[in-house]
Design a protein around this nucleic acid. Sequence first.
DNA 1: GCCAACGTTGGC
DNA 2: GCCAACGTTGGC
Length: 159
Amino acid sequence: MSTRKRHWLMKSEPEDFSIDDLARVGTEPWTGVRNYQARNFMRDGMRIGDGVLFYHSNTDVPGIYGIAEVASTAYPDPSQFKKSSKYFDEKATQETPRWFLVDVRFARKLDAPVPLSLIREHASELGEEFALIRKGARLSVLPVTAAQWKLLLSLETKS
DNA sequence: GCCAACGTTGGC
DNA sequence: GCCAACGTTGGC
C-alpha cells in the first residue's frame, strides 16, 4: 500500500463551522456527516496527515477557503448516540456505530478563496469525474487527486 | 426562497 | 426488489 499522503475536500457551511472557527480551535472533530459515501471516505480512506481543502458551501461565494489536515484516524461520531443532538441516530449503538468521523486540524487560510465559479472554468483539466463539479453532486467529503490538488491551489492567486 | 438532483425510507 | 414519497443538499 502506498504511504503517500492523500488529498480530500470537505464542505462546511460557514454559518455552521467556518475556516475561521477552525483557525480558532485548531483541531475539530468533523461531526454530523450522515451520508454513507462520505462516511466511507473518512472511515476507510483517510490517514493522519492527509491534506484537506476546506470548502464553504451555502454562502455568497462558495469555494475553497483554506487548507487543513487529517489529524486522527476514524472513530465513531459521538453525536449519533446523543438523544439531544440533531445528529442522533436511533439505529446506531455503541457496539455497532453507524457514523464515523476524523479530527481535522487547521493548516492555513488561503490568501484569497478559490470560488466555485473559477473552479468550474477548469472543469476540463479537473476531469469529468471530479465530484465537486459533477452535475448534482452533493457529497460533503470527497477525494481529490494530487493533480487536482495542485491545480486548485494554483488558482489561489488568480482570483 | 426556489428548486433540481440525489439519497433514504418503507409499503407492497 | 421496486419505486413513490419524502427529506436534504447546495447553487443560484
